[in-house]
Amino acid sequence: MKKFSSIAAAILPLAFAFSASAAEYELLNVSYDPTRELYQELNKSFTAWYEKKTGDTVTISQSHGGSGAQARSVIDGSPADVVTLALPWDIENIQKQAKLLPENWQSLKPNESSPFNSTIVFLVRKGNPQNIKDWDDLAKPGIKVITPNPKTSGGARYNYAGILAYAKEKFGDDQAKTRDFVKAIYANVPVLDTGARGATNTFVKRRIGDVLIAWENEAYLTVKRFGADTFEIVIPSVSVLAKPPVAVVEKNAKEHGTEKVANDYIDWLYTDDAQKIAAENFYRPTSDTVKKEYAEKFGNIKLVDINDLGGFNKLQQEVWADGGEFDKILKEINASRDN
């Protein structure tokens, strides 16, 4: 016993000395569904980098789910230090409803607080039997298009915006033609899943549909997982530039004493190291040097900023909101289906 206490007496001051120089932090990153693999890799790199630089250890926990549901859980009190969601709209709601971050959150970090971008592409069956090349092929009669419901799926809103991006190129500001085009594509949708992973399941496992509209990174992951002999990726001429936003949940981080490390974490996502990991995971880097390095990996595609399509908030309120334009279009499709 005496021996034990003398050892303890020798170790204890040492332990205190050690803890005085190195802090231990815990971060909770609340994210959306398809980023699971991406953030696992990023977190590992960040932890190592941070310990080397400051001597502090960081443990990062992740939470994944539908982007809207994840935002909801933060509003309802999930102790997130950092949110990395699919849509600016979801973080905007955390700001508006729970006031957990400042109003100008989106201008606090570069590139509208979006460290890496993505876009929307097509996944078709091997050999592309329906010869699908661009968005207008999706509107042809008899083609079956798989995309989730934009009301329940954040990713599906970008799919919708992709249609708008092409319509803008083709029809300019002609609202009536744009609307008819959107309607023609959604009339070709036999299954309207609630989320992106459900839609992938419908296309891959149930073998329904000729084309799946998907996140670029999800499309590459699906081809990687199921093999290039079953699916092919088709890059349309135009698509939407998706900027999944990130933010420090200021109020939570202040309470946890993690404000500095949370900001370091977000800032680190913009470094070339992090950007390379993102590119390896099929997210489009925003850093110019990494962009050049991976230019060949990502196909040649004209990307339209969602702000040029009216902006996310406006589309959300006018098109995807309950009783909005999308609801009306579906009602008309249903009415014409019955006749």
């Binding site: 549901a69 309207l192 899943d193 989320g195 009602k331 249903n334 289906r337």
Partner: peptide
Amino acid sequence: IFVSSNLPFKSQILPVVIVGKIESHNYDA
């Protein structure tokens, strides 16, 4: 949600409609 084609007016069950309203932040509805 995995079995149905979830088309409004045709093959949506009520819980799906409710989730759709929550996702559009329309809690009242």
